[in-house]
Amino acid sequence: MGVMKEQLLARLEELKIEFQQYEHPVVLTVEAQAKHVGHLKGALSKNLFLKDKKQRYYVVSALAETKVDLKVLSQRLGLGKGGLRMAPEEALGEILQVPLGCVTPFALVNETARHVSLLLDQGFKTKESCFFHPLSNDMTIALNARDLDKFLNSIGKLPAYVDLEANPPVGKDHPPDLAALVPSDAPTMADPPTQQGSSQVSEKNHVSSNTQPKVVPAAKPVKSSSAPAKGKSPGAENVLISFADPDKFVEEILEKTAAVILSEFKEENIEKHREELATTASKSISKQLGLELKNLAIIFKNTAYTEGFKAGLHHQPKRM
């Protein structure tokens, strides 16, 4: 059984995360949600649960108005044009452990979702607050991007904000800019038997329907966690430049190490077997950090290749 709504809200309070909550009837679509909270100060979100051909899973969380082209996203992840599709309903219950219409970044709190990759819309950072379901679509909570990051870091998930509408070139001279977000440690899973045409669940079943919430009278307004981001977020070229900087490269490694350690020091782990905690944490860190470093090394290699290619073009002798 997965984490329940009440447990999630309690964890947010323990982390001192400010949020507003709105109770409402069960809803399944963003459109339905808009009828209840669309008039409030905040941004609606749509959340997709996807899989690739190797049975690796992804949650893509975007602003309701953001256009997400799965073909383009597949190429940017290095999966080819047809690499992504909607995950089957069976996987929704087994991996995220939430009902239809309840997919949000919060679903990654469950241990069964440890290997799921999360892609966040860069647009969230420009909003004062955003709406998500807290594992149940009979309630919506509003919080800002900084507090969402705080929650994700507490469960060992390093937030990855990307421009989901970007369409950078991908090819021999342009490595996929989101390749590092493909989960490399996910166990291989066979597709559950489905009837013809049922392998892809309609998008509305996986879209977070942050809708129809009833405003709680005592709710306090959500404070903006950070100033709106100005300009466009880094694209593929800026990502490469970032990893070409040794200081930023090391900083990224240290952040991932801290995230893995935090994910192991959970209250339930400490209460069970204190003497085994060090061994458990050590094995987990070795496994997860090794994979993270591998992904960083791939980006570093791609950076070196790209920069070398550019340098070669720049110093190419002019023809007479």
Rank of each mutant, 00 (worst) to 15 (best):
6 E>G: 03
13 E>D: 15
16 K>C: 03
16 K>H: 09
17 I>F: 12
17 I>M: 14
22 Y>D: 06
22 Y>T: 10
22 Y>Q: 07
26 V>Y: 08
27 V>D: 02
29 T>S: 08
29 T>L: 01
31 E>T: 06
32 A>M: 12
33 Q>K: 08
34 A>H: 12
36 H>N: 07
41 K>M: 04
42 G>P: 07
42 G>T: 04
45 S>Y: 01
49 F>M: 04
56 R>V: 01
58 Y>I: 08
59 V>D: 00
62 A>P: 07
62 A>E: 06
64 A>V: 03
68 V>C: 02
72 V>T: 06
75 Q>G: 00
80 G>E: 02
86 M>G: 09
97 Q>W: 09
98 V>Q: 00
100 L>C: 09
104 T>I: 02
108 L>N: 07
111 E>F: 13
121 D>K: 01
122 Q>H: 05
123 G>N: 05
125 K>S: 01
129 S>R: 08
134 P>E: 06
140 T>I: 06
140 T>K: 03
142 A>I: 07
149 D>L: 02
155 I>H: 04
157 K>I: 11
160 A>G: 07
161 Y>D: 00
162 V>G: 00
164 L>H: 07
164 L>C: 00
165 E>G: 01
170 V>N: 01
177 D>I: 02
179 A>M: 10
182 V>I: 09
182 V>T: 03
183 P>G: 01
185 D>R: 10
187 P>T: 11
200 Q>S: 09
201 V>A: 12
202 S>C: 15
203 E>M: 12
212 Q>T: 03
213 P>C: 10
213 P>N: 02
214 K>C: 06
227 A>S: 14
229 A>V: 14
230 K>A: 06
234 P>Y: 05
236 A>V: 06
241 I>W: 04
248 K>L: 11
250 V>I: 13
250 V>H: 03
251 E>L: 14
252 E>T: 15
260 V>W: 00
260 V>F: 03
265 F>E: 02
265 F>W: 05
268 E>R: 10
269 N>S: 07
273 H>C: 04
283 K>W: 15
286 S>Y: 14
289 L>V: 14
295 N>F: 05
299 I>E: 05
302 N>Y: 09
312 G>D: 09
316 Q>G: 11
317 P>L: 09
318 K>T: 09
320 M>E: 14
320 M>N: 10
